[in-house]
């Protein structure tokens, strides 16, 4: 690679709290690949599409502020969570196409001495690896290919839909036939399995108020992966991970099945293939243990 990749890392909340293994493994993989991640410690929560239901303007200003700190680092922002990716890029998209709205937001930001300019791109870590680092470069660094593993990719909604928003920053991924995770699994030596639910919703955003809905959707995804003979699942989204891992028992029950399938975060899968010790990738944090590693 010609130039060292450098990003402003927007961790989001979950990677700092209920999925600490995501942040751990991301940092470990980045270090191994020589990617510089400058954590935006000033950032706030993105609103997770719930604050957006209550106060649209506040969520816009907060996310514009988050972007300001990527801009001040003169780096593109990289996200670890599909929902952060959605909300930050949706903010960016709206402000970049509506000067009146941008002025209104900047008026508020000026009260704390900030200005949103629109110069930093936002992309999810998955696509930073795929598009910027490159699969061929990654393959060269694989030392422990995940041979003999059937891996079920679970894409998560907010990285692939709506494609009109994400198309620029996810390599034009088609939401009906996504293949980025499949490619990464292959690059890491694993065998991606195909199943109907791989691009479907886990139901996370209705977890509290409609647990039956959420559990059934997660249950369908889990059993879909199991029935496709997957040894484990991999997802780029920590919210999907919470539903598929922490809530796996309930999700299985909701669809009348007992399920036991490990779910890994994307950087954990890459990390394993790069030869990083499972401990450093935080595999011990999972509720359903990935016993193979």
């Amino acid at each position: 690679m010609a130039k060292k990749l450098r990003y402003a890392l927007y961790t989001g909340c979950t990677a700092k709290e209920s999925t600490p293994e995501l942040l751990k493994s991301t940092l470990a993989v980045a270090e191994k690949l020589g990617i510089e991640l400058d954590i935006i410690e000033e950032a706030s929560c993105c609103g997770a599409s719930h604050l957006q239901d209550f106060d649209d303007h506040l969520s816009l200003v907060l996310n514009a502020r988050n972007l300001c700190y990527a801009e001040s680092r003169e780096a593109p922002m990289v996200t670890l969570c599909n929902t952060c990716q959605l909300n930050v890029s949706m903010t960016k998209n709206r402000l970049d196409f509506d000067n009146k709205l941008k002025d209104r937001v900047n008026q508020d930001l000026s009260e704390v001495g900030l200005e949103y300019k629109g110069v930093s791109d936002v992309k999810h870590f998955l696509y930073a690896i795929l598009e910027d680092y490159g699969l061929e470069n990654l393959k060269k660094k694989i030392v422990k290919p995940l041979k003999n593993f059937n891996v079920a990719p679970f894409y998560g909604c907010h990285n692939i839909r709506p494609s009109s928003l994400h198309g620029k920053n996810n390599g034009g991924e088609n939401p009906y036939v996504p293949n980025s995770l499949d490619q990464l699994i292959e690059a890491c030596g694993g065998k991606p399995v195909d199943y109907e639910e791989k691009n479907k919703c886990c139901g996370f955003h209705a977890d509290l108020q409609a647990p039956e809905t959420a559990n059934k959707l997660s249950g369908n995804a889990l059993t879909g992966a199991v029935d496709a003979d997957a040894d484990f699942m991999v997802t780029p989204c920590p919210l999907c991970h919470l539903n598929l891992d922490v809530k796996q028992k309930k999700a299985g029950e909701a669809v009348g099945r007992e399920v036991n399938i490990p779910v890994l975060h994307l950087p954990q899968v890459i990390g394993l293939a790069l030869g990083i010790e499972p401990e450093k990738l935080g595999l011990n944090h999972h509720v359903v243990k990935a016993v193979y590693f």
């Binding site: 909340c13 709290e17 929560c45 997770a48 239901d53």
Partner: peptide, 23 residues
Amino acid sequence: SNVATRHAVGFKHSIEQHGFLDE
């Protein structure tokens, strides 16, 4: 006031107190 509305509004309070969420 129900679990869903409090959840949406709760984001604001959590952000105000911690910046990140107190999940």
